[in-house]
């Protein structure tokens, strides 16, 4: 099938509207309206033209999907978000729920004596 590849000098429309890449058409529309308020056509015709062009490129669901797919995934950021959400609960749950029913002190000792010095300096 024919594929619509973006031009090399094509500025990311998400960036143009000041949002992260999204599949939510409502978010795009809200960002567009906010940008129009910031760059009204009678005061900033060039800015308005840019914003309008970015919105046009994201208006149809298929275009939005295509643009979303073009954006690279920030693996480090995704990993950080996951760690922020789960690392501490996992550690806490492990302390509370292990079957061996060790006391907190025993767990602390058990954990501490497995660490090398460079982990605690």
């Amino acid at each position: 099938m024919k594929s619509d590849t973006p031009h090399d000098n094509d500025v990311c429309p998400f960036e143009e509207l000041g949002i992260a890449s999204t599949l939510d058409g409502a978010v795009v529309k809200r960002a567009y309206l906010a940008a129009v308020r910031a760059h009204p056509p009678h005061l900033d015709p060039e800015g308005f033209k840019r914003i309008r062009s970015a919105f046009e490129r994201l208006k149809k669901p298929q275009d939005l999907a295509r643009r979303w797919l073009e954006q690279p995934v920030d693996l480090a950021n995704e990993r950080h978000r996951w760690t922020e959400r789960f690392a501490q609960p996992i550690a806490a749950a492990e302390l509370h729920c292990d079957e061996s029913s060790l006391s907190i002190v025993e767990r602390f000792v058990d954990f501490g004596r497995q660490l090398s010095l460079d982990k605690v300096v």
Binding site: T83, F108, L115
Partner: peptide, 18 residues
């Protein structure tokens, strides 16, 4: 004093890949 022991373990684990 127990929470301080728990906290230090959790914080150390947070810096590692679980």
């Amino acid at each position: 004093d127990m929470p301080s022991l728990e906290a230090v373990v959790s914080l150390t684990k947070l810096g590692q890949k679980p």
